[in-house]
Nucleic acid binder design. Structure first.
Lengths: 137, 137
DNA sequence: GCAACCAGTTGCATTTCGCAACTACTGCAA
DNA sequence: TTGCAGTAGTTGCGAAATGCAACTGGTTGC
């Protein structure tokens, strides 16, 4: 059996993110600072726990996030972005850009998205640095 | 019933493109110059005709593509990108960028993707101009 | 000890997806 | 005018994904 439908960049990306939840989870880890299962459960959109479990497993297998024990709480897991995950930042920014232009975004609720889109490469670089600091080892 | 799960830019975008095919179809229209149903059927990944129909209807309702009669053939439809669709170009480029770095892209088959990613803003601007010329009105 | 919290798991109904076959119409050539 | 290839889909149905609610087994704090 074949591993991929094709080896086109767009297709390979959609094989990973071609569902309604994966990128929303990445958003919460990347921009909302969420690092625990329970935090991710409280997404604005209301994800179900089994779907969240599935996606976290998939994203970890893809090497986009990593999972570690919380030293202060045996049962808690900390989810972090890998470099591969952090590298999704430019895609997120362009999605924000497109969405702000063409979709009915709630500007009051998502001021940080507006800021990031308007902030240009300089702000994006700063955000990237902060993510590397918080998520990589 | 609510129209959207939330009015976050990422979520609004995933409500449209959160499936395995929509962006692959856009890719074929945008980069492969495909404009007819039959051409789109021959995607490398092998889309089924009913899925293609569904997605084309959805993308048209979303205002991302438009559908027009072929003047030379009563039964043929020409699919074009709208400005909203053309504005997906930066997202495509960033997806290419990420994929080239982190996924097993077939570099020989997708040289034009490499070129577009390496070409920077200048080439992207040229491609955008060409798309506007070919697809709008 | 015990209630609240933690990360899931399970079962089941609903929805979506995907494949193969089929339809209805058009243009072309004999 | 008749057949045939080409056009954009539609239909039926089994498989997979999704969503909801309840449940599990362990941990932490009081």
């Amino acid at each position: 059996m074949e591993k991929h439908r094709s080896y086109c960049p767009v297709n390979l990306t959609m094989e990973v993110f071609g569902d309604k939840w994966s990128l929303v989870i990445i958003r919460d880890i990347m921009f909302e600072g969420k690092r625990y299962f329970r935090e991710l459960m409280q997404s604005e959109e209301g994800i179900a726990s089994n779907i969240l479990t599935d996606r976290l497993v998939m994203l970890e297998q893809e090497g986009i996030i990593s999972k570690a024990d919380d030293p202060g709480h045996k049962q808690k897991n900390i989810y972090s972005l890998t470099l591969k995950g952090i590298d999704l930042l430019p895609i997120m920014v362009e999605i924000g850009n497109w969405s702000l232009k063409h979709k009915p975004v709630d500007l009051n609720k998502h001021k940080h998205a507006v800021k990031l889109v308007k902030g240009g490469m300089k702000l994006q670089g700063e955000v990237r640095k902060a993510l590397i600091k918080d998520h990589l080892k």
